[in-house]
Amino acid sequence: MRETYTHQNVSERGAATVTTQIVLPGVVGPEGLEVRHVGAATPGPGEVLLVMEATGVSFAEQQMRRGKYYDQPAFPFVPGYDLVGRVTETGPGVDPALRGRRYAALTKTGGWASHVVVSAADLVEVPESVASADAETLVVNGITAWQMLHRTAKVEAGDTIVVLGANGGVGSTLVQLARIAGVRVIGTASRRHHDQLRDLGATPVDYRDPDLHGRLRGLAPGGVCAVFDHVGGEGVVDSFQLLAPGGTLVSYGTASTRDATGSAKAPVLKLFARLMLWNALPNSRHAHFYNIWAGLRNADAFRAQLRTDLGQVFALLAAGSIQPQVAARIPLSRAADALRLAESGTVAGKVVLVPDEEAPSTDR
């Protein structure tokens, strides 16, 4: 990783507010990420400055470095879909009482930095009883899992569901939330993660099994109430066929096309078309693509729902009902190592970036 310094836009607050940022300069491998040190921005009206305590590596950043995330900004930019941090400054119109308090924020980009300016309206308070890295594993993953389960699929106690990639950040959260709701879970993962899935309460199936569809069907001969599929591609057909009458497929990614060449939008558009076709056919099964930003057209309602849903997830975390799945804690300046690890397919849970002065990545 290349490290650079700039003194542009350094405010009168001095060197103590210099920000460390991880920058994606273009389509690069993990080693192509850049570490930049710039002056921390001053929060404007309605904004706050968060000092990052934890941020994460999700599938979105893996796609962004390939230039394949559906609506990513132009290069160069700072990635980072979410973060947990403490408010140190408030802009005009923001209650100064927020200073010193810890919040989570969904950012889509910008989270991989030591200081991040966000809208105060986007803050969700984090219980002081939980560690920042633990809370970070449940920001975008927790919102995604909660809303897919309870708002899209509307699962009920006694239902049976299939979770593909049940060892991942979203997948492991889905498993736990479903079990709390009294739902039986069948989860796919590599064999190395099967014991972990059993501990979380799921029935594991090897995703490399050449008869994966048959194995899943054998565990639920009458079909399942919902399938949560982050893989996309042609395999989504098998996912839809696992549904019982009235069941729901919730698609939320196209991981199978991560390394494919060509248009970044084509796999997603093809998936959309397929889901729309299934919904138009005369059958009782349903197919949805989950997009966390879908409700943003009404910003106030979107933020209120986000606070409600993430607040419930944090409450479960604080109560010990959810076990945070931290795959590794890696210092921010070693983001290349973190991205490489997250892409390796060898970890369970979420790789978390922490401030450079915190624990090394051997805490796994």
Rank of each mutant, 00 (worst) to 15 (best):
S132P: 12
G345E: 09
L197S: 10
T152Q: 09
G223A: 06
R208D: 14
A54K: 02
A202G: 08
G233N: 05
L49R: 04
S333F: 05
F77H: 10
H7C: 07
V27D: 05
Q196L: 15
A266Q: 13
T173W: 03
G235S: 12
V78E: 02
T4A: 11
G93S: 12
W146D: 08
T160C: 08
F228G: 03
A266C: 00
E61T: 04
S58W: 01
L269F: 05
T254L: 09
T144C: 07
E128I: 00
G110Y: 08
A104H: 01
V38M: 02
G56M: 02
R215D: 04
G165T: 12
S239P: 10
D206R: 08
P43F: 06
S129N: 00
A157V: 13
D209T: 05
V139F: 01
A104W: 00
Y207L: 05
T254Y: 04
G262I: 10
M52R: 09
Q62L: 15
G14Q: 12
T188A: 13
L339V: 11
A181N: 13
L271W: 01
R101D: 01
W112G: 05
P25N: 12
H288S: 05
S361T: 06
Y69F: 14
A181D: 15
S344H: 04
L242M: 10
R65G: 04
Q312H: 12
R36K: 08
R340T: 11
I292D: 03
K265R: 14
Q305C: 03
L33Q: 02
V116L: 10
L123P: 07
